[in-house]
Design a protein around this nucleic acid. Sequence first.
DNA 1: GTGACTGTTGCAGAACGTGAGACGGGGCGC
DNA 2: GCGCCCCGTCTCACGTTCTGCAACAGTCAC
Lengths: 261, 261
Amino acid sequence: MVTSEQHPAGSQAVDRALSILEILARRGESSVGAVAVELGVHKSTASRLLAALERHGLVVQSEWRGTYQLGFGLIRLAGATTAHSSVSRELQSICDTLAQSLNDTVNVAILDELACINVVQAMGRASVAAVKEYVGRRTPLHATSSGKVLLAYAPPEIREKVLSLPLAAFTDRTIGSPSVLRAALDQVLDQGWATNDEEWERDTSAVAVPVRSLRGDVVAALSVTGPSTRINPPRFADIASRLQAGAATMSAHVEFLASLR
Amino acid sequence: MVTSEQHPAGSQAVDRALSILEILARRGESSVGAVAVELGVHKSTASRLLAALERHGLVVQSEWRGTYQLGFGLIRLAGATTAHSSVSRELQSICDTLAQSLNDTVNVAILDELACINVVQAMGRASVAAVKEYVGRRTPLHATSSGKVLLAYAPPEIREKVLSLPLAAFTDRTIGSPSVLRAALDQVLDQGWATNDEEWERDTSAVAVPVRSLRGDVVAALSVTGPSTRINPPRFADIASRLQAGAATMSAHVEFLASLR
DNA sequence: GTGACTGTTGCAGAACGTGAGACGGGGCGC
DNA sequence: GCGCCCCGTCTCACGTTCTGCAACAGTCAC
């Protein structure tokens, strides 16, 4: 086998095992054979790696000798992440404060491939609507405020990739045209905040601002989501400025924010 | 080094890497040296394993050459778990239905070491209180309804282990005496459901029932949590029977529920 | 400035993971 | 019901890759 990757030093087996988790995250469910093909290894190797992952509860097989899926051990670990990680804790605390003052759901989201993922969430007391947003949720980049922020500041190749793919519609207001999206992203860069005016879900709107590392790179998006009765165009700018204050606190207080990735 | 474990076949490096995740989940933050000691390997080995984990975003180091913590990649994967896993999806759907009908927060929790972990959650429309429960949350076994269910049906060694350790108090109603807890667990086995009457948080109560695999083993707990104004002793039995219906649906519909672990 | 400490990086050896193939169990078609 | 095929797991010998040692490079304390 050709060693196409040039990692600093070798942890081949670990790399492969972790890649399996990503494959399963993408596919949702996969057979040993399929995993082996995608990894480019023999099926016995894939079988053993999966067995190791299963021993730790990170994957489960649906039936005896059935297909594999991600397991609940990951939820356990993710819970520990939010509970123990100092970065998470600080972000959480800032979000809690914002959620209290804005009275709606506040999220921190990061870019992952071609999607936007919530990593921290805080809810305002006024949350009466069913909870559609949650930590770990993947949302499209073109139909959410956080997504637009992340996309606007993302490397050009990501931006162009999204612009070149079909833009799925979720409501009748979802941006469907690449040129309109491009203009919207330019506006985001210009004004420093993005909105989602019922483009992702009916009667629900949101505002988002970038969160920057100390070096100035945009590493995350901070957003507030709520019913359009409270979050609507006349108030967008005001909400954005309050979010920006929170984002600034994050940049200042959260050490090594760049590690979000 | 003595090979004290007898795994079917070897994935030593993968096992160690995954163990690191568990160590970090427990400790929250750890230095390379500490990880190496706990794993019983050389620090260079720990360093390389951590680097591999970091490449995949599962851990991050606080600063340059600083300590390591769990990373947001885990949240990404956990999100994929709930989104794609067929088991999760079915459990989620059943919880959603229950949450709508009971109008409070419904959780599925599993046993993890000496704690209880929420793996699925659905919220009723009436949730006005701040969200204290969340997926991934670890709670003690003696102070929650889910915990009592899991503990009551757990293997004797787990049960005795918990009974032998000090029982932390969270409210003035938390069970603090092993003999009282033992009696409570016996009652759970007897009646088939457990309660938490403001023992974990003031003004908040809960009811939980066991979820069984098709083989009859208790693999999880299904619970509803809400303000004591709605969830209180006179209603416990009725709520429990409605939960039991949901648990039965889970056993019947969710294939290979045993894989929860 | 010096010394102790901690994390990362060459290096050689060997342990461990890998791949080929065999085994065994199910599913499906005939 | 029988036999074929497919798929996941197990065994085994080989050699790739991981490991531990030791040196290196920063950092903190004094």
